[in-house]
């Protein structure tokens, strides 16, 4: 069983399980939207004093913080007991493109070590990708009113046109970054 679970899960297993995650939360009376936890954390930190956007009863959102606490534990369980030794089977074209951009071992770990490590943080490209990248995620998710879970999964499942527009935006931004900006940033 553990051996079976330790293999990488194909998309047709992972996708339906994500739907299950959303449905379980709905059955528990909640809605699936991870980026809301960022707003809640700001509220807990006292951001309500400077912006009424954070002036709400964060206790009503405590369930979501417990949910993401679970996600952290889930990541730990998977890394500790369901680990796979093999590299990520990336498309050959992706591997070659990344090697040309100076990423040495694409797919060997989940993240490129040159960038996503404490040493990497103190390089120009690492600093930009972690700090600016994180900022854009937090700013954009709240501006758009949701992230991948809230819009692409929950919103599209409920046939919300605003969510479709947001997802189109996700791709516009993602494609600009991938094709125009990352080649410059990665070779800094």
């Amino acid at each position: 069983m553990i051996e079976f679970l330790s293999q990488p899960w194909p998309w047709y297993v992972a996708g339906p399980l994500i739907t299950l995650t959303m449905v379980l939360l709905l059955l528990a009376g909640k809605s699936f939207g991870v980026s809301d936890t960022l707003r809640t954390t700001c509220a807990i930190g006292g951001a309500g004093k400077v912006s009424d956007f954070f002036d709400f009863d964060w206790r009503s959102q405590a369930w979501n913080l417990v949910f993401v606490m679970g996600a952290i534990i889930g990541g730990f369980i998977a890394a500790s007991w369901l680990q796979q030794p093999d590299p990520i089977p990336l498309a050959q074209a992706t591997v070659e493109k990344l090697q040309a951009l100076g990423i040495e071992n694409p797919g060997e770990e989940y993240l490129p070590d040159e960038i996503f490590s404490w040493e990497g943080l103190f390089t120009l490209r690492g600093f930009i990708m972690l700090v600016v990248g994180g900022f854009l995620i937090g700013f954009g998710a709240r501006y758009a009113g949701g992230c991948t879970s809230g819009h692409a999964i929950s919103g599209l499942s409920n046939l919300q046109l605003p969510s479709l527009i947001a997802v189109i935006g996700f791709f516009i931004g993602g494609l600009i970054m991938t094709y125009l900006l990352l080649p410059l940033i990665l070779t800094l």
Binding site: V68, I128, G133, G140, G145, I172, G173
Partner: peptide, 22 residues
Amino acid sequence: PRYLIGGTIFGLGWAMAGACPG
């Protein structure tokens, strides 16, 4: 504008950091 601009900003960050909040 809200969803398109906000979404585009999020997408820039998603592709850069390679991770969304989950």
